[in-house]
Design a protein around this nucleic acid. Structure first.
Lengths: 208, 208, 208, 208
DNA sequence: TATGAATGAGATTTCATTCAT
DNA sequence: AATGAATGAAATCTCATTCAT
């Protein structure tokens, strides 16, 4: 607003000036607040009021960083999708050997960890995606990517009635849902028990 | 499923007078309209206006039969939960014999049929349940009941690392999700292929 | 109230045919119901629904006998105003003699009786009158008539500072309000105590 | 009454920042507008639309300061009740001496002044109270307090048939009603005439 | 004469977004 | 960069009255 501020000018200037630092901090506060609010109320029921209250700032400030409620949601989805992509890139080849099982177990543990952190957003984008929201689609594409990676990686032996694409999708969604029930406390089980069971079911399904 | 449903017959008044009949028909129109609208927009985004438009009646009439949008949703959930309960009651014992597999396949087919009819509502109540709505919980309890019934029925052999409760929940949610992807057209596969794969994965998981 | 009332007498036809009798009974039911509902909720808050429910009939029937909610209220007001007019006509001359006091006491007792019966309507028309309703004015005119009659009757001695019109209005409204507090249970006192006090205050005010 | 009212100063936040000041001004505008609208239409018939129109703001702003129409009414009642309490506290002892009569007359004048200012609200809360509204009760408690204070203060000589509680309630309601008829223009009399008459009637009733 | 379903205008309330400071 | 007041479009819900039977 004040004419002597060159701050806003520079989309060309990378200097982490103190002013920019403050702004970045505020933006981060909104992202955190958004994660909390979307997780507890869902995309539609979440109010900008709620986000502003949790972030302990003002309405005006919100629209300084995000063009709309959906924009905030998109930003969060992008963040999570990045993490999922890393997982996809790291999916180990699935083998029926002790080390192969260990690698799968390890990978499932990483997935569970991510889910514990971002599950709420993932569940929210499922809602968004079901009803035509663009950002929900982007998020779910990432999840779908996991299944695709599995399909490519698993080398399911061609047995009668076991379509690799369907099977891997089935298994991947199973993993997701079990983590969901665990994360929401609806499934009372230790992480170890869950991992053991999932590894076992996947292995059993894939290797004869 | 059974054509003669006596459940809806006597809500408060026993007289099947012709006047009452008209009201019952209108109420049914709202239920149908609700199913359509909730399915396409979700619980929050759905407007009473939309329901009224689809049912081709008036605002006032809506509130004659339902006290709110949520009330309509509850009624739909109750309807679907009843159907799910029938399925729960009919889950066959799972055996690794040709006839056992056939029974399982048959049952999965019935589930898929129900899902095709009511999947939209089920998906919507997942949304509702995630964010604290009571009726969503009621619906999901019904789904959870399926898993519980499976746990009771499946007689999963105690193998190291295979907890029956976790396993059956995992398998049941897998079934639900695969049907979801199929119903929404995200999984391109024939019903037969899907059923074969599911039977196979379940059998493999359960019988060593 | 009694079925043999030829009062409403037939615009064209006098025969108390059975059909007409039924109609008259229904109309009476609405009047009773209206008295109850208006008394407990007031003119604005009272719903035609409530009246219909109390009368245990139908919406359609209501509009067969009254053109609107206000019409019903008007009819009730007219009924009460008639009774008040009788009282006005019977106001005894007020004298400071034992028999004069007894006559006043007797008359106040009749007023109290009427108030117990119709006080709710009187209170309601006060509401109506305050905010411009025509029927409220008609009702209050009747009450005002009482004060006017008193002014004419009391023969207040011209003392300095005692304007007869103001004094009689003051006394009459006092009577009305005390009956109101008694009727609503806000004043805990026997009828005798109330009458004694009112007679005493009026006499004291009027006669020296 | 006192020019420096610290009551309204610090609602929740102590900072008298210029921003807060604007909000306080807007809230005050709604209170004024409410007084006008309730006075002319009553509690039920008054529309939030009317209040918003008189205050010349927006619907949204209204709900920023009051949770509902009733909330606004409550706030107004609280305001008036505070003023009435001051009057109660200031009721002079009633003595049959020139100075005692003068004090009573003075006090009645203050009551009349208050009634001219807030009579509309008082009349409205009578409506509310009659039909079960909580805030109406609170307001009328204040009026009742006046009678109670009178009972305590007046020292009506115990004469046969003159119950002090009934008498003071009778006299107080008379005062209120006469002011009502005066304020609404139904009683054509100068303030002096009214005061003289009221003092006279009260004195006559109390002192034999 | 009576019923009860249906209507629709109008009221209340919410909330994403903009604006003045 | 930030604040918080204000806006107004759109949603929910109510209820006096009409209509078909």
């Amino acid at each position: 607003m004040t004419p002597a501020q060159p701050t806003e000018a520079a989309p060309t200037d990378d200097l982490p000036s103190p002013l920019r630092a403050r702004g970045r901090r505020t933006r981060a506060r909104f992202l955190e607040a958004g994660a909390i609010v979307f997780a507890s109320k869902g995309l539609h029921a979440a109010r900008v009021d709620d986000v502003v209250a949790v972030a302990d700032t003002s309405h005006g400030a919100f629209y300084l960083y995000f063009s709309s409620k959906e924009d905030l949601f998109d930003s969060l989805v992008a963040e999570v999708a990045d993490h999922l992509q890393e997982l996809i890139d790291d999916l180990p080849p699935i083998r029926d050997t002790p080390s192969g099982r260990a690698a799968l177990r390890e990978w499932l543990a990483r997935f569970a960890e991510l889910y514990e952190l971002y599950g709420a957003i993932i569940r929210t984008w499922t809602e968004a995606e079901l009803f035509g929201d663009r950002s929900g689609q982007r998020g779910n594409d990432a999840l779908g990517g996991l299944a695709a990676a599995m399909t490519a990686n698993i080398r399911i032996p061609k047995r009668s009635g076991l379509d690799p694409a369907i099977a891997s999708l089935a298994l991947m969604t199973m993993v997701e849902r079990v983590n969901y029930y665990t994360a929401t406390g609806q499934l009372q089980a230790t992480a170890d028990e869950v991992l053991d069971t999932l590894v076992d079911v996947i292995a059993a399904a894939v290797f004869r």
